[in-house]
Design a protein around this nucleic acid. Sequence first.
DNA 1: GCCTGTGAAGCTATTCACAGCT
DNA 2: AGCTGTGAATAGCTTCACAGGC
Lengths: 205, 205
Amino acid sequence: MASISVRSVRRLSLYRRFLQESQAAGKRHLFSHDIAATTGASPAQVRRDLMEVSGHGSPRQGYNVAELIDALSRFLDAGTPQPVILVGLGNLGRAVLAYFAGRHPKLRITLTFDIDPAKTGRLLNGCPCHCADKIPELCPAHGITMAILTVPAAEAQPVADRLVSAGIRGIINFAPVTLRVPPGVFVDTMDFACSLETVAFFLRD
Amino acid sequence: MASISVRSVRRLSLYRRFLQESQAAGKRHLFSHDIAATTGASPAQVRRDLMEVSGHGSPRQGYNVAELIDALSRFLDAGTPQPVILVGLGNLGRAVLAYFAGRHPKLRITLTFDIDPAKTGRLLNGCPCHCADKIPELCPAHGITMAILTVPAAEAQPVADRLVSAGIRGIINFAPVTLRVPPGVFVDTMDFACSLETVAFFLRD
DNA sequence: GCCTGTGAAGCTATTCACAGCT
DNA sequence: AGCTGTGAATAGCTTCACAGGC
C-alpha cells in the first residue's frame, strides 16, 4: 500500500461521517462536489482521496453511498473493535467520555483511570474507573493501544510516559502540552487554547 | 505584512506558551533547538517562523526569553483584550469554560449562552449565562467577534448561522460537523472523533 | 565553534485539465 | 452533457546549507 498522508486519512474519516449522515437522510448517491461542499474540501481533492480506497464512482450518478461507506470502513477500520482508555476524569474527561459513549462501533472507551480515590471503583457511562496505578497492569492485559488523555497539563507528560511503557501507541491529548514520545507512538493534541489564539490572530486585519 | 500561514501562527502560539513556561522555570535564554525539541518542530522551522516576528536572537546565547515573549505577544495579540462567548453549557461547554477561566490575559470568555432555562440567569465560573435568544442583541452590544461552540451536533450549524449574523467572525467548533460559513469567517473544528479514527488508522501497520 | 537568519532546494499537498465513460 | 479517475502542473511548506556574527 502506498503510504497515505495523515491529512488524507483525516478527510476520509470526515467523508465517511458525512456519508453516514446522508445515508440516514435517505441519500443513495452523491457526487464528489456534494461531499466536497459539506466537508470543506475541493471536489478534486475528494476524488483524489477516494482513489486510495478504490471505491469506484460512476460518472452517471456519482458515488453509491452505501458502497462507499463500506469501502471507507474497510480502509479505515481495523478488523476487530479497538478498545480505548481514558485517563483523567475531570470535567473534560467526563465530557469526552459521555460524548463517545456508544457512538462508535469500532472504537470504544472500555476503561477509565484517575488518581482520585473518590472516582475510582465506580462506573461512569457504564465504564469502570480504576486507579491510575493499574495502568501498567490493565492495559497490556486488555490489549489496549490507544488512550485519551484528559489530565491537567502538569500531569500530561508523566502520564504519557507511563502509557507508552504500558504499550499505548496512540494518544489523543487534551492537555495544552506538546508530548514527547518515542518514534512509533502517534499523538494528536487537541490544543484549544492554541486554536483560539490562532483564530484571534486572523480576525485582526 | 507578508501573509503568514495558519500553521506558522499556530506554531508561534505554541512557542510562546513554551517560552512562558521556561521563563517561569527561570530560563533566560533558549536556542532554536530547545524550542524545537519541546514543541515538535525542527530548529530550522523555529528560526523561519521567528523571522516573521523579527525578535532577534544572538548566536552566542540564542534567544532572550523575555524579549521573545514580548515580540511574540506583539505579533499574536491584538492591542486590547478580546471577549469571547461560549455557546452550549453541557458537560463539554462547562469543561471548556473551567479550562479557560482566568487563564489568558487577552482572550476571556465574558458571556455564555444556552437554551436550557435551568442554566440561564446564573453565573458559571464567574461568567453570566444568557438565553441563546439574546445572542443577536448581546454580541454586537459587547463587540464580540469570537465564539466557542459546544452545542450538540444537530444544533451546530443553525447556531453558527446565528452567530455569524450576530457579527461573530471566528468560531472554535467542538461539534463533529463541518460548519458552512461565509468567506471571512474563520472556523477551527476540534473534531476528536476524527482524530481518534485517524490515530487508530496509523496504529495498524 | 556553534549559533542565527535566510536564499535556494526539495518535498508534499492541492488543483488543473482532460481522457474516458455512461 | 457532466461526471469520474488521474497524469501533469502549481502552490505551499519544510529542510538544507551556508554566510555572517559572537
